[in-house]
């Protein structure tokens, strides 16, 4: 099957000449460079003394290499009024993002399992409403959310932020898992029922082991969204603000000179975890997105 289709592809593929091919690669390389340019600028300027930046050339390689801006951004820079660096906020973000991603993914998987394999009266409505929640803009829920957090006594805390992100993320994770499990044969669930497995056992032993691709999609999606979120963090973070809010405070601080090299280092620090997740799991991401639509 696979060999048949690949040979068919060779037959129909337009044979491109060497010149055309070189040209195509050249253009692609140019685009790649263009997209990498900001990363380059951030990188080189984060390892320069400030004078080299203010004296003019942002594009040049450093004359004096220094890790001082990184050190400053991480542990000593002024964030708001405290000279703590980004370190404590980075920790806040980790403490927020790990449980929020884990909980929303697990709940999404359970929802998808129930909505496809344990269907009940009105289940399509429930799913429709969850889908609808994906389209609600952040700003609309700010005030009601603040009230709920206040009543729960979670305002301004990391658990409060976890709750907010879990609630907001469940719509997306449910959508992913529901569509993935919809393609999963219901006969398998029936066979497992006859074999004597119960609700959780079927989920754990039959469905979860084949949920890898969609779990990766859910984790990447949730991780990048929650890590990069600014609005909820700024609104509900209180004393437990996440990295994004701290970065903003670092860059916006009005006292003293603007330390661009420290800002660049801080920005890279803020982007590293998402970059890491993409590099590690990125290729599964596309595979997972395709898995629901194309049966292989």
């Amino acid at each position: 099957m696979a060999s048949a289709s690949s040979s068919a592809m060779q037959d129909t593929a337009v044979s491109t000449g060497r010149v055309t091919r070189t040209f195509v690669y050249l253009v692609l390389a140019l685009f790649a460079l263009f997209y990498l340019l900001p990363l380059y600028v951030m990188g080189v300027n984060s390892v320069k003394p400030l004078v080299e930046i203010t004296s003019g050339n942002m594009m040049a390689l450093p004359q004096v290499w220094t890790m001082a801006p990184w050190h400053s951004a991480w542990s000593t820079a002024q964030i708001g009024v405290e000279p703590t660096g980004l370190k404590p906020y980075f920790l806040n973000s980790i403490l927020m993002v790990v449980p929020a991603v884990a909980i929303s993914t697990i709940v999404g998987a359970l929802n998808g399992y129930i909505l496809t394999k344990w269907r009940f009266r009105g289940d399509t409505w429930v799913f429709g409403l969850m889908l609808f929640s994906c389209f609600i803009p952040f700003q609309i829920v700010l005030i009601p959310m603040a009230m709920v957090l206040g009543q729960l006594g979670l305002a301004g805390s990391v658990p409060g932020l976890v709750l907010v992100h879990v609630v907001y993320g469940i719509g997306f994770t449910t959508l992913y898992f529901r569509n993935y499990y919809a393609a999963f044969p219901t006969e398998l669930v029936r066979a497992a029922q006859i074999d004597g497995a119960g609700f959780f056992r079927i989920f754990w032993r039959i469905l979860l082991p084949v949920s890898g691709p969609i779990a990766v999609v859910s984790v990447i999606w949730q991780f990048t969204n929650i890590w990069n979120d600014f609005l909820f963090g700024a609104s509900f973070g209180g004393t437990s603000q996440p990295m994004t809010v701290a970065l903003n405070n670092l860059v916006q601080s009005s006292t003293g000179v603007k330390e661009y090299n420290v800002h660049f280092a801080g920005a890279i620090l803020a982007a590293l975890p998402t970059l890491f997740v993409y590099v590690v799991a990125g290729r599964y991401f596309v595979r997972g997105l395709m898995a629901g639509s194309v049966k292989g």
């Binding site: 044969p185 006969e187 398998l188 029936r190 066979a191 497992a192 029922q193 006859i194 074999d195 004597g196 497995a197 032993r205 039959i206 082991p209 084949v210």
Partner: peptide
Amino acid sequence: VHPSKRNIAMVFQSYALYPN
């Protein structure tokens, strides 16, 4: 009575073998 407690076994059209 629950399927697992009827002492029956079933062979499905799609075989329904657990893929993992």
